[in-house]
């Protein structure tokens, strides 16, 4: 294998119904840094049916080149058809690094492609870097239940591939003036050769989706004591228009359904305001919320690790502070005569 033939950083642009997934834009941001360090172009590649209009957006978010395979059979994601498209592009253009969002489809596709390319694939990466001299991708991910991080390398195979968790990388501000190259490849696919068919796609907007999109989250931990006490968090959330979430211990205690768990084995969230109330801030929890804009922690224990990530920390008893906070908000509302309500940002 001649490594010098492999050049460039590629991002898999995942699209559904002509809409690009957030994680793909985040990865363009992360990929930009890697490509600049390696002094190579950043490519975005996308597959689908009628996807040409998306190329501009990919460039605006940082790509220098967009590779596209457009075919009716690629309308819906399917491992079989998509991987054929990816294989075609990769074998022809030979990028040295490929990143995929760690979404159901991204992970599925990357695993299949890695098997056929006979190369390494690092799953669920949360930190990315590249060593300029060796041109090695340093993909770091939580190991052993998240207590420590492991950096995974792929020294003897190309391309180097990784899936990256949504919401841990930051997208760039789109630059609509940016120009780039658009490359299209055609592919020969026949529907009758496909062994799987997507019959229906159902979007259910569950609570979980609410959590992922919420601007304000009130997250409670085991320190609330019991399920009764936990209810005051709902009251706070109702008063300020927030969504309630919880730690794993809370979910395991049965105070909340699993969809509302935040953290490594739950949801990753990035709200504008995150209340971390009576939770210790275990590393597995923190990875799921640390990118929130403003983190307010309330904890009895001044040494609780949550204070290391909180923008503002209050050492105190949540059962005392939260009711007072609710009261203050209520008072504020009644002072305004109940007529003023702040519109939620969309």
């Amino acid at each position: 294998m001649n490594f010098d033939e492999y050049r460039g950083v590629w991002i898999f642009i995942e699209q559904n119904d002509g809409k690009i997934e957030g994680v793909s834009l985040e990865l363009l941001g992360a990929g930009r840094k890697l490509a600049d360090k390696l002094q190579v172009p950043l490519g975005g590649f996308l597959l689908g049916s009628g996807i040409k209009p998306l190329a501009k957006q990919v460039i605006a978010y940082g790509a220098d080149e967009v590779y596209m395979v457009d075919h009716p059979v690629l309308k819906q994601y399917r491992t079989e058809s998509y991987m054929q498209g990816v294989m075609l592009l990769v074998e022809k253009y030979k990028p040295e690094i490929i990143l995929y969002g760690a979404t159901p489809n991204g992970k599925d596709l990357a695993s299949a492609v890695a098997t056929d390319l006979v190369t390494g694939l690092t799953a669920d990466t949360t930190m990315l870097d590249v060593d300029v001299d060796s041109r090695l991708l340093e993909a770091s991910r939580p190991a052993f239940g998240g207590n420590i991080m492991a950096t995974i390398l792929c020294k003897k195979h190309r391309p180097q591939m990784a899936t990256v968790r949504p919401k841990v990388m930051k997208a760039l501000e789109p630059d609509s003036g940016k120009v780039g190259k658009i490359i299209e490849e055609s592919i020969d696919l026949k529907e009758e050769n496909m062994r799987t068919k997507v019959l229906q796609i159902v979007n259910d907007v569950t609570k979980k989706a609410n959590l992922a999109e919420a601007h304000v989250i009130v997250c409670g931990g085991k320190g609330m004591g019991d399920v009764q006490n936990f209810q005051i968090l709902y009251e706070l959330a109702d008063t300020i228009g927030a969504t309630v979430g919880g730690t794993r211990d809370v979910v395991e205690a049965g105070w909340l359904p699993h969809e509302l768990q935040i953290g490594q084995t739950g949801e990753t969230v990035t709200p504008k305001i995150y209340f971390a109330i009576a939770l210790s801030g275990a590393i597995q929890h923190v990875v799921g919320m640390k990118n929130s804009d403003l983190i307010i922690a309330i904890n009895k224990d001044p040494n609780a690790p949550v204070f290391d990530v909180a923008t503002y920390g209050i050492v105190g008893d949540a059962l005392e502070i939260v009711p007072k906070l609710i009261q203050q908000f209520k008072q504020l509302q009644s002072e305004k005569g109940g007529e003023v309500s702040y519109a939620r940002e969309i």
């Binding site: 304000v216 300020i240 003023v340 309500s341 519109a343």
Partner: peptide
């Protein structure tokens, strides 16, 4: 502006 304050 991020908060939605419900009227009591």
């Amino acid at each position: 502006d991020v908060l939605t304050l419900q009227s009591s």
